[in-house]
Amino acid sequence: MKNKMISRSFAAAMATATMLSTMGLSVCAASEGLYQGDNLTEIPAEKILTTDGTTYQPDTTFSFSVSNGNGTTESTQVTDDKGNLVYAGVTGGLYTDASCGAVFSAASQSSDQIQAIYQANGKLKLDVTAFPKPGVFHYLVSETPSTYDGITSDTNIYDVYVYVYTDDAGNLSIKNVVAKKQTPKGPVKADLTFSNDYGKDNDGTHDVKITKTIAGNQAVKSQNFHFQVKVTAKDGAAEKYLVKYSKDGKTETTDMLQSGVQKEYEMTNEGYVLVYGLSEGDVVDVKEKEANSDGYTTTIQANTTQFGSNLIKNEATGTLQTSVKKDGAIIGYLNEKNGVIPTGVMATVGPSLILVLAATGLGVAFFRKKAE
């Protein structure tokens, strides 16, 4: 009796799918977690990155993992929520390859395209020829953990059920795929979506501010100094970095740095270059071209708790190289020029002055005596 009910449910589901296919529907999500089509060969898998709103998307591809789920055995019967028998997934029936990844590219972004959320679509492929018979086949889908610097991967796992049907001629087709996210309260039907934190909450990206201070009794605070700034992304990725720049601390403009490409910024007193979106593995290089010139002494100030162990600074050449491990990091360049106030004037003219005063005194005495 139970097998008859299962067969009826399966037949009803197949009839529904056939009706939808005659309406000309291709791959689509009829409702959340349900993908339908004439004979599905792939289904979408969405990838989302959340940022702090000051970071370009990374230059990388994220991939997905598929494994065979459990199903009915000789000793255990597994069914779906409609009562259909569920079989363990068949290798090659649902799979991924190099073309299935979700691709993010910083190269495609301009300086005004900074977003808090980035999205890209990957996919999973289906091969009906891998299935030996009609039925419901169970798979487990997750994202492959990312090793990209600054990203926290999504650990969600989805149960994916592939519905394989047959026609009167014995031809197999895939008309339905159902995805359910595993939750503490049990599986919940949901689209295949994986969300990664890229600096929104995980502190995976940082910023650094390069500041300029001119001081001293002979300093000219409007004097121009030129800074060469370069960021090199970890593993040579083609990253981009948002820059907020002010020559004098009064007017700010937006700029962009590309990984491995040096840019020059002109600053006077209170000027700054603020670089966002730095992962801890990125390397920042700074050089002040006029360091220790024109009578100025250059000092570079950098709090070591904000930077990596690779911090190297050379005040003689005005250079610094480091990685950044905390938000709000500051690299301060102080150019100081002080003139020496002349001293020892009294010591030099003292004896002569004494003689002059003595002579003046004698002259006064002489005239007094003469007057008497």
Rank of each mutant, 00 (worst) to 15 (best):
L40Y: 00
E42P: 01
P44S: 09
A45M: 02
A45T: 00
I48V: 13
I48E: 04
D52T: 06
D52H: 08
D52K: 07
T54Y: 08
T55Q: 06
T55A: 06
T55V: 13
Y56H: 08
Y56W: 06
Y56C: 03
Q57I: 00
Q57L: 03
P58A: 07
D59C: 00
T61L: 00
S65Q: 14
V66M: 08
V66Q: 05
N70V: 13
E74V: 07
E74G: 13
E74K: 15
T76K: 14
Q77A: 10
V78Q: 13
T79L: 15
G83N: 11
N84I: 07
G89L: 03
G89E: 02
G92M: 12
G92P: 06
G92W: 11
G93I: 00
G93V: 00
D97T: 12
S99M: 11
C100R: 13
G101V: 07
G101K: 10
A102W: 04
V103D: 01
S105F: 00
A107V: 09
S108V: 01
Q109S: 09
Q109W: 00
Q109H: 06
S110D: 14
S110A: 10
S110F: 04
S111H: 07
S111A: 13
D112P: 03
Q113N: 11
I114V: 14
I117C: 04
I117E: 03
Y118S: 00
Q119R: 15
Q119H: 12
N121T: 10
L126N: 02
D127L: 08
D127Q: 11
T129H: 08
A130Y: 05
F131L: 09
F131M: 05
F131N: 02
P134H: 09
T144C: 04
P145R: 09
S146M: 06
Y148W: 14
Y148N: 09
I151E: 05
I151K: 02
T152Q: 11
D154W: 09
